[in-house]
Design a protein around this nucleic acid. Sequence first.
DNA 1: CTACGGTTCGCAATCGATTACTCGATCTCG
DNA 2: CGAGATCGAGTAATCGATTGCGAACCGTAG
Lengths: 356, 356
Amino acid sequence: MGERGVPATIRDVAERAGVSTATVSRVLAGVGNPNPGTAAAVHSAAQQLAYRPSGIARSLRTRRTRTLGLIVTDIQNPFFPELVQAADMAARSVGYSILLGSAAYDEHRAMHYLDLMVDSRVDGLIIASSQLSHETWNRLATSPVPVVVVNAEPVGVAVTVITSDNVSGARLAAAHLIELGHRRIAYIRGPEGFTADSPRIDGFRAACREAGIPASDIVEVRGDGQVEGGERAAAALIAAETGVTAIGCYNDMTAIGAMRAIRQAGLRVPLDVSIVGCDDIAAASWVVPALTTVAQGKAEMGRTAVERITAALNHPDRQGSPEIVRMPMLLVRRESTGPPPGPTGRAGSPATAAAG
Amino acid sequence: MGERGVPATIRDVAERAGVSTATVSRVLAGVGNPNPGTAAAVHSAAQQLAYRPSGIARSLRTRRTRTLGLIVTDIQNPFFPELVQAADMAARSVGYSILLGSAAYDEHRAMHYLDLMVDSRVDGLIIASSQLSHETWNRLATSPVPVVVVNAEPVGVAVTVITSDNVSGARLAAAHLIELGHRRIAYIRGPEGFTADSPRIDGFRAACREAGIPASDIVEVRGDGQVEGGERAAAALIAAETGVTAIGCYNDMTAIGAMRAIRQAGLRVPLDVSIVGCDDIAAASWVVPALTTVAQGKAEMGRTAVERITAALNHPDRQGSPEIVRMPMLLVRRESTGPPPGPTGRAGSPATAAAG
DNA sequence: CTACGGTTCGCAATCGATTACTCGATCTCG
DNA sequence: CGAGATCGAGTAATCGATTGCGAACCGTAG
């Protein structure tokens, strides 16, 4: 695996080129007007020694690492890779690298990573999290490095946060269902504590209310934000014979689970039950029927986060002015939603829904 | 966002505790037998100043960063997150952090990241890649830091590589299909250049041959390793009226695409056509029918990669002994495979399928 | 009371770069 | 031809930790 002795240092290059380390540093950095001869000598020496400046030494001196910390709730949740990729690209394009930490849904672990990243002196920190305790918010607000939070609802703490307009997004989903003619609608919520859960259910309820659907006609169950939870929740919904003809879901994984349960019960999507998800993860268009969902600008959020961080880095003066950025969400109509079954349509939920 | 002036240094702590920096370093590192009184003073001072040692300065001095570079082909490919997560956990558990780079399928970009990581003096490097040019292999073999390659077929270059036993895995898939009674089988290959493509088609062919199926009965088409490519390939297969009753796929995304195309053509999985994938990504069990596939030990590979790297780090002596680790693959039977349609089953291609 | 073994801790070098300051040499122009 | 401007390059301080070496101090024994 490894080979070679020690890598060449700037001193080695200086000696070989017959100049001082200061000169090597200058010509390699392209500052000053070096004599063409010296420049050539330096470049040649550097080349021959395969010299690569030590980022460590440079960072110690310049007090900047050109590294951004990125902590995500869980890299295995398909919501995050797109965001991570976009952040990585955006960062690289302005000369930064990304130090990643995947917290595996453990907030305590996330805070540990935060400490480690601060120790390694990242220039800035991006936290893409689905849940954040108050204690954590405070830690973030007093962080020694610029922080931006992505994908969590702001709670009034002085930290820049970038998030989707969850309320409007959920309204979009509900409005779509209502427009198709659905009246008995269910909503499978996300895990308690996930900050997007409240605004989404609120938006969903609001749209229904405004359409004149009594709150009592909206049945809410709780999922876990994963496929399994969606499956269980939808199965319970069907077993309860609520006669719902459409289900809004906290996220796409929940929706995919719900679709499984519905099919399992012998019903068809969207003929018997319509499903709408949220997030627009890649798998949403892989399943059959393809999932109608409300898309979040995941890549856009990643890019924006990097942009905000680097802005703060370049203007350390007017920092302390945290902002809240809300990205619009967009309804993506695919195949999992349609009009409710007509009176002569489906014979009802397994037992009763005939009245549907 | 950011706040606070400069973070406290070891000198600040030393002054406040009334000792030298050497002592601070020692008590905080827990080496030596500090006088209980001094130890208390140091800890207290460190506490009050919220002192966090600079990883930069420490790394410069100790010549170790306790950071591992991890470059993946594309973090958006669902194959990688599980591997990344496992590697991250394994690394953290032995005191290392992960510097991530997602190459977005661009090998040139991957090499650029490699340079950046070497510059930032990572202690070791893990490359999880689906394709690797000869030039890249050579770069890796002469890397100044220990390298392990994951998920690519070894090509005789002196680098440790950890990969699945692709040949046997593909045999498993083929054998499963054959055992179910299929005789006219297709295989949708991965992109040219992806190193797992060859061994997989080889293993698949070998199992067929051994079962007495003439090579001419195996139809091969090329996908792109993504859902779209699988969809196109399967659509072409159906349009060609080859009468295949089962399709083996390069990976799960290809298989998921193939299932879409089959359903699109009015056929059913697995009643009319059986599908078997490869990888066992999360989405394999989300689709309906759930995908039968050959699982790779993704997490295991991630852990093993970290284990091998850290082993090399701890025993710099007997390095230069690259090894090849082949992880077994496992058939996961789900719902997308079944016996071929009987003589009275479907009458063949889409045009006539009505009989089914 | 001195000598000696054993602790505890401080001094200072070191890791590899960057950069303010300074010094000679060359150039310019009266 | 000489004074000052200009320019290229070297000297050395610095970033913040770690660590080998030795000094100071302890207690104990002869």
